[in-house]
Structure formats: structure tokens, C-alpha cells
Simulated assay, not measured.
Amino acid sequence: MDNLSNYFGQNINQKRIVVTGGTTGIGKAIAKLLVSLGGRVFVFGRDENDLNGALEVIKAKSFSGEILGISADITQKDDIDLIWNKVDNAFGGIDILVNNAALPARGIIEGNYEDWKYILETNVLGYIAFAKEAVNRMKVQKSGHIINIGSMSAEVKEKTGVIYVSTKTAIRGFSTALRKEINPLGIKVSHIEPGAVTSDMQEDSKEVQKEKIVSMEMLEAEDIAMSVLFCLSQPKRCDVVSMQIRPHLQII
């Protein structure tokens, strides 16, 4: 095998990449890693302060890649159109899409119709809408890679998170079927299901999350970023179809 540094960077350098929900947590870690390897990355999120913070942190590293972004809501069609106009103008297309934007949700006893509608539009329709736009562009060049970030909830199906479980189970099925549809077009699809990861979605405080990392009960966002990199680094003949990443002591 060639030098591993070349292996992990060969499919990233100068690639045009969109990371949904790329301003915090897993998305931010993914964007940071891919920019460090020369990727040209576009991110967005709903909170402008989070966006500015992410752009500042990544740009400050003086990486060889490029980071751009705007504040936008994945549930708004006008915002979706704006994002893709920005991507087309800046990059002239897309090579890699990382579908990551998602919101937490609890059981069916809590919440109401409008809450659930917004969650579903973010966690499911958002993935579908961005995959559609990516495929429209990738099929012309007969190449591309879509990575859908799912969750272990699709397997565990915890009773305390019925709504969230529903969305992540949908993403598991969507990823499987999507690969069958677009692989003949030269487009790869990978599905990654993390276990417990430090993020703002966790109910535990930052201090407790840090303790759980030390005790191997929780992952860091960078662990998932490395999993994404592994999927993207495979040769064209090789698809990483599904991957589950869990803390060592999170027994499911």
C-alpha cells in the first residue's frame, strides 16, 4: 500500500464538499478534517453565531483547503435554493455530500404535531432534498459520494426517543435504497451510525460528557469525522456501505 497520508488524502484534495449542519458537533469536526486535507467545503447551520465560530476556528488553522458557509434552515425551500446557488457559484458543482443536519426528539407523549413536523422535515426531508440536488449534479460527471450520518437509535429503538428513532430508521432505509438507485450512475452511498457522541444534542453537561469520554462511554465528534474519512478514502471499486461506530463501553 502507498503512503497512508497519500491514501487518506487522495480523494479529498480539491474536492467540492457540502456538509449539512456543519457548524457544530459532528458536522463541524467533519468539515475541519476535510478542509485540513485540501477539501473545498461549504457548511451551513441555523445559528449565525455557530456559523461564524466554526468558520473562524477552521480558517485560523491555515489549512490547505477552503471553508465557506452561510446561516440557513434546511427545512426552508428558499434556503435550500440559496445554498445550492452559493455552492454552484463558488465550486461549480459538488463531489461529496455529507448529510448530517439533525435535531433530537423524544417520545410521542411529549411534543405536538408542529414540533414533529419540523423534526421530520429536518431529519428526513432535509437528507432527501440535499441528496436529490447532489445527484442532479453528480450524475452529469458520473461520479460522487453521499454520506448519510444516521444513529444507533435505528437499531436500539429506545422507547424514550420514538420520534428520533423514526427519523433515523428512515435514514437507514433511505440510504440502502438510494445506493441501489444511484450506484449505476457512478455515485457512492455510505451510511454511518454513531453511538453516543459529545454534542449539544446530549442531555448531559459538557463536564459529564468529558467524563464519559475518559471512561469510554462516549465518543468524540472527531471519531466520526475519521470514520467519514475512511469511507471517502476507498478506491472507486470499493464501497463502504454501512458503518457503526460505538463507544467501547456502550453495550447495545
Rank of each mutant, 00 (worst) to 15 (best):
D2G: 08
S5C: 09
Y7G: 00
Q10P: 01
Q14H: 14
K15N: 05
T23L: 11
A29K: 08
I30P: 04
L34M: 08
S36R: 09
L37C: 03
R40S: 11
V41A: 02
V43Q: 03
G45P: 03
G45I: 07
N49Y: 09
D50I: 00
N52H: 11
G53L: 03
A60V: 06
K61M: 13
K61D: 13
S62G: 12
I67P: 04
L68Q: 13
D73R: 04
D78L: 13
D79M: 04
D79C: 07
I80D: 10
I83P: 02
F91E: 02
A105S: 15
G107W: 13
I109W: 14
G111I: 02
D115L: 13
Y118V: 14
L120H: 08
E121T: 04
N123A: 08
A131W: 04
A134G: 07
V140E: 11
S143V: 02
I149S: 01
G150P: 05
M152E: 12
M152A: 08
M152G: 07
K159T: 10
T160S: 14
V162M: 14
I163D: 02
V165S: 06
S166T: 15
S166H: 08
T169M: 11
T176K: 15
R179S: 10
P184A: 02
P184N: 02
G186E: 01
K188G: 04
S190V: 06
G195M: 01
G195R: 01
A196Y: 05
V197C: 06
M201H: 10
S205L: 02
K210P: 00
K210V: 08
V214C: 00
E222R: 10
M226W: 14
L232Q: 05
Q234C: 07
V241N: 14
Q244F: 12
I245A: 01
R246D: 07
H248L: 15
H248Q: 14
